[in-house]
Design a protein around this nucleic acid. Structure first.
Lengths: 111, 111
DNA sequence: TCCTATCCATAGATAGTCTATATATACGCC
DNA sequence: GGCGTATATATAGACTATCTATGGATAGGA
């Protein structure tokens, strides 16, 4: 993270799954959604996004379908599978647990 | 992170600096402190800890000194430098900002 | 016509973590 | 005296995920 962490490593898959849980979206739309919801704090680079989507496809957590966008452009729409929704729940709970643990370490009180 | 994330990548330096802000400690003690404060959720492996301490030394955020422990064993005690305390503040604020941003993305409300 | 935003994707560099290994000693127990 | 466990430092190599850089294509507005 020394230079410019646009993301917290390890959270991208969870963020994508959470975004797709709202509605199916194409890759570019996922990146925009995350950027906007985070008030520009989180930026998903293409070199992170597409490999991540490939991972999620391979693991069966999302499925993809080529469609036309509202503006008549070809795009690949991703949506959550049942397994993906389950995985999202798992990642969310692990994330919460880890954040809570980090919070305890960052506290002032000594052991 | 697919397998067994003992830590959230990118947070280790911050956790070490925060631990040393309480009191100087040797490496083994830092690992124990983080493990205990986090209720065993966070485990700092040696292969992560010592490279991290080297990074922090090189960047001048901590300094080291060989001493005897209370149990009469030789150990290298690390302590925060002024620059390290400043760096800790920076990392804490960036972390808070990022966690808040992730929280917004994970929310239910749409954009 | 040109420029910007939209859209997909990959190759290679970089960084940070984990696994495995090596070394060494204090201390309690049998 | 010998053994096991906890204490203590450190490195090499594997692995994974991210970022940088690049390439291509098209819709629509200026």
């Amino acid at each position: 993270m020394a230079r410019k962490p646009e993301l917290m490593p390890g959270t991208l898959d969870m963020l994508i799954l959470r975004t797709l849980a709202r509605a199916p979206l194409h890759g570019y739309g996922i990146a925009l959604s995350i950027k906007r919801l985070s008030d520009d704090v989180l930026t998903v680079e293409e070199g992170s996004l597409y490999p991540a989507l490939q991972r999620l496809l391979v693991q069966g957590w999302v499925k993809a379908e080529w469609k036309k966008t509202e503006t008549n452009r070809r795009a690949r729409y991703y949506s959550l599978t049942v397994a993906g929704r389950k995985q999202l729940g798992l990642e969310l709970s692990q994330f919460e647990q880890m954040i809570a643990a980090i919070g305890r370490v960052l506290q002032d009180a000594d052991a």
